[in-house]
Design a protein around this nucleic acid. Structure first.
Lengths: 232, 232
DNA sequence: CGCTTGTCAAGAGCAGTGCTCTCATCTCGG
DNA sequence: CCGAGATGAGAGCACTGCTCTTGACAAGCG
């Protein structure tokens, strides 16, 4: 039972092979998409028997889980980096920067984007360990709002009436993501979050085909409008 | 070479069997989702050989196309009906009504919603004949805006600056959907459209798990905010 | 009436999938 | 240095989409 502190030669070899499998799986994911990800094809490309793969990965679902975590971490990292790089800019510009970075990542990794933000793979239940990396992107966006709110009070332009049930839900959320702002700012942030990924999904999945051609300009305009509605 | 004007006994029988196949496929779609839709399973349920199905449907992809058209039409119809039923209500209420109807349909038919608004099935290219039914929903929403604009000038609250490229794109869109309104109203409608389905996808695909619990209240609040931003 | 033609169902078969099992091999640690 | 555990390979099961061939049946025509 050697753990990470004392990596046996065997343990190292095992980790290396596992990495190779995941890397090849990610390569195939980028080529053909998640639904047609085949364990046998991965094994074939790696020159090993399909059954041998099962020594390293419990099955197709676990391989998907590893890829999901990978994708979340990859996206989370670029988002965090973008938020850091734009830390001296005005809050609304910072918001747009992070949003555009997320958009760029989505366009560079459409299949990985689909894996985490598209239709859930049927019969596959995302396990607990995917939720932590999954929040990184969202927290990067929330961070922009939080730090702007710490510097000055935000005056959101969103017009919405909040029923008591929603206010209670917002109160819970406020504690969860540690964002000590008014209900209006909170709900505006929440809506901006969904709008950002909604627009992005429409783009990546070509739902706007024929309707929009200037996707980037629309996205920037949308991100700007979101920042305004939050009060950044 | 008998066409619809003169339905041969054979042609009628053929149409009936085709309908049975599509109906069974829709049933299985509602149970297990699109990815695990199996032609053999459909044939089995209908008590015929798998190869016999190919006499009526060219393949799995064509079956998917038929189901997509079905789903679009089903959603389009309820949306149009909702817009008609609420024709005497105030525009912003009418917008919310139609939006909630779309939401209800999505919750009642999650797999069909995923089929048309989720990740595109890999290797499957949606053919031309799906685009017409696909616009029905959107046109129902646009109709609410159009008829409100015909009665009084809308004063949108969306704050966005429009670069020239986007303005040109909006001009094209204005003609396409026959919505003679200001750029601000048009872009607000466009953004509302994406936000509506973005939020809905987040809900249906459980992307908001742990973040939101009062989905309906949030959706109504969001729809109201959209109506406000358009100026309804 | 008989025969040809077109339609249909069924079965076998191919290539692929996920996954499990057994068996041989190889390597590492006591 | 030898045994135990880790590893790889292959066969096999139950699926999938799809094609091809074969045989049955009904419709239409000479």
């Amino acid at each position: 039972m050697t753990d990470a502190a004392l990596p046996t030669a065997r343990a190292r070899a095992r980790a290396a092979v596992t990495d190779e499998i995941v890397a090849e799986a990610r390569r195939q994911l980028g080529e053909h998409g998640a639904a047609s990800l085949s364990l046998r094809a991965v094994a074939r490309a790696l020159g090993m028997a399909s059954s041998a793969v099962y020594r390293y990965v419990a099955g197709r679902d676990e391989l998907l889980t590893l890829l999901i975590i990978d994708a979340y971490d990859s996206l989370g990292e670029v988002a965090e980096q973008a938020a850091f790089d734009a830390r001296r800019k005005a809050p609304h510009n910072r918001w747009v920067e992070v949003a555009c970075t997320i958009r760029r990542w989505a366009h560079e990794h459409p299949h990985e984007y689909a894996l985490v933000y598209g239709t859930p793979v049927p019969g596959y239940q995302a396990p607990e360990e995917t939720s932590a990396p999954g929040t990184r992107v969202s927290l990067a966006l929330v961070g922009v709002v939080r730090e702007a709110a710490e510097r000055s009070t935000l005056t959101p332009t969103v017009q919405v009436d909040l029923p008591p049930t929603l206010v209670a839900d917002l109160e819970r959320l406020r504690g969860l993501i540690d964002l000590d702002v008014d209900d209006e700012v909170l709900v505006a942030t929440l809506l901006a979050w969904t709008q950002l990924f909604g627009l992005l999904s429409f783009e990546v999945f070509s739902q706007t085909r024929g309707v929009v051609t200037e996707h980037e300009a629309l996205f920037v305009a949308a991100a700007t409008a979101m920042a305004k509605s939050i009060g950044l």
